[in-house]
Design a protein around this nucleic acid. Structure first.
Lengths: 236, 236
DNA sequence: CGTCTGGTTGATCTAGATCAACAGGAGTGG
DNA sequence: CCACTCCTGTTGATCTAGATCAACCAGACG
């Protein structure tokens, strides 16, 4: 093996779950030719709030956080995007500037696909549009749910909630068969994700620890009794 | 004139702004044949959270509120939908139950379009899908904005904000050229719309009144100095 | 008339924001 | 090697926005 293996769109495993699975071979070949894959470090940004949309970003590996900020310096993490997801599509479809910033939370490989190519594929293959429609509908549903939780549930509940969501995505069982979760986020990002301050996050982590739901050691979380935790979540 | 005039889809003015403007004459004729127009009173519900999606609802006149509730009785108004808007499309596209309830806030005329017809039109005319895509993207953007506001701004700010939004949709100038807004909502719905309690809403109305931004008399709001109000909004 | 619903007001309590101090790394540079 | 800063996270103290509970009023409507 001579260094990094080049991954073609054909061989890209994450494509199955992404909108791009709607493409036929010829279209995939086009995509593979024009895509610009790049290794990106944590902390770097794919696009910035207010910037014009140059194209789409398809995440091959790593984790991307979608942030929203305002003039007063308030900042929130709207959502996390992982392997297979395509980000930046809303600004593209809107044909206007990005309303959010996309930042690498974990290092990874992301392919950039320029605007013109996406436009071409979209007019050529109606199914691609329907895929984006699916994605957009899921996003809207999730945002509605988050809004609802944000204005109705207290921080502790939202924390338990996000812990379960993160567990489903990043958790697993350790050697002894105990539920463990490696957090892909700093504490302050965790706070931003549920819309609270870092101090409140810290205190609530202590609280759920005292209550015996989970133990936090750095970024690893051990969940002793998942069922008990589930029972304390609001019936969504 | 013999009672109510029947409005065909061809003559329906609100169609211009809706997704249905993507249809050609033959498709419009089909839509016109199968649509089920109905006059609806305030308080009645188009569909209920948890119910299966039977089809779409196209609002000709009146105002619809999209509510979300949970087991504990918490309730929120997610958004208001007016003439020309089609509601219920997310559950339809998701092919699953409604996640929200749609309730008439003002009486009006709403056309029901059954699922099978929409499915047929959607496969037949790709542009219709793109229209829904637009709609979905706008919804997602708006929900992201609302989530952000909900977790970062206090009630008073959100109230001033929603007043401006409502003014743009329902406001105007009175005989003396003063800005007036006729609220299409009860106080408690106004509270639900910004995610707070009726009591807090009442107190904050008093507050913005004391501050001289607006005068509330029943459901009519007189905004004395719009510019001053705008200056106090967060730069979105 | 009563009853009911929607709205306002008062009193109280608490979740959570904010300000401040401080403790552990992790570099970095002498 | 130490001294320095920078950054993240925790903790303490304080303050306030807002939820909650309760009483009350006005209009609608049987």
């Amino acid at each position: 093996m001579a260094g990094k293996t080049r991954v073609t769109c054909f061989g890209c495993q994450t494509r199955r779950t992404a909108e791009w699975c709607a493409l036929d071979d010829a279209e995939l070949a086009l995509l593979d030719r024009v895509k610009q894959p790049r290794e990106r470090e944590a902390g770097t940004t794919l696009f910035d709030q207010g910037a014009p949309c140059a194209g789409l970003y398809c995440i091959q590996t790593g984790l991307v956080g979608i942030r929203k900020l305002d003039a007063r310096g308030n900042s929130t993490l709207l959502r996390l995007c992982g392997a297979g997801e395509t980000v930046g599509y809303r600004a593209f479809l809107r044909k206007s500037d990005h309303l959010t910033t996309a930042e690498m939370l974990l290092p990874g490989r992301v392919c950039f696909i320029d605007r013109a190519t996406v436009r071409a594929l979209l007019t050529q293959n109606p199914n691609l549009g329907l895929r984006f429609l699916d994605h957009s509908v899921r996003d809207a549903d999730e945002l509605a749910q988050r809004y609802f939780e944000g204005v109705t549930f207290p921080v502790r509940t939202r924390l338990l909630n996000v812990l379960m969501v993160l567990y489903e995505r990043f958790g697993g069982l350790d050697a002894d068969g105990r539920a463990v979760l490696e957090l892909p986020l700093s504490r302050q990002d965790l706070a931003a994700l549920i819309g609270t301050s870092p101090e409140s996050m810290s205190r609530n982590i202590g609280r759920v620890q005292d209550e015996g739901f989970a133990r936090f050691e750095g970024r690893t979380v051990r969940i002793d009794d998942i069922d008990a935790l589930m029972r304390h979540l609001p019936a969504s």
